[in-house]
Amino acid sequence: MAVTEEVKTPDSTPEEALAHPVTSTGLSNEKIAMWAFLGSECLLFGALISTYLLYRGRSVVGPFPHDVYDIPYTSVSSFVLLMSSLTMVLALAAMQRKDQRRMRVWLLTTALLGATFIGGQVYEFTVFYRAGLSLHENLFGSSFFVLTGFHGAHVTIGILMLLSLYTMSAKGRLAENRVETVELIGLYWHFVDVVWIVIFTMVYLVPGVK
């Protein structure tokens, strides 16, 4: 069992104690919890991707994937999300250098790239819906919208966390030594990116290979 105690030396401030807790593992409990959470999320998205694969090619009525997919458009969306991972890690690097001004710039850039991805997904959903594809139209529609919708919800939660972090920093409520707070949100953000890497290949590209 991990035991957490604050370091209390005559010189340590409450913020320093918060940033460097002593645990029985020597590792941050919050970071262990985040990795355990991300490990469990693999099972959630694994179930959704498996459901999509199970129903692939079993729809009796259209629209079918090749009727609605726009691969160049989705490739640009994927690129936007990939680059948001870069800006997120640059935000963390800035925080490690105690440069909060630059960190805020990168955080806002990451949130904007995430919002661009979500905007693209909303547009894509709208186009698909106008083409006759809905959640209950056929098996493809059900599994596609549930999978990509869950992923989109995760990205949206990530954007809200990024904006909260930005606001905390802008108001001076983010102590310089709380690097781990930025790192934990970064881990979540990178996770939604790696999930999209799998979705892009398994859901968009592979079924269309001739």
């Binding site: 593992t25 262990i32 990795w35 490990g39 099972l43």
Partner: peptide, 13 residues
């Protein structure tokens, strides 16, 4: 330890 936690989730899934 972090790697093991994540990889365990992936392998299990």
């Amino acid at each position: 330890l972090f790697r093991r936690l994540f990889v365990t989730g992936i392998i299990l899934a």
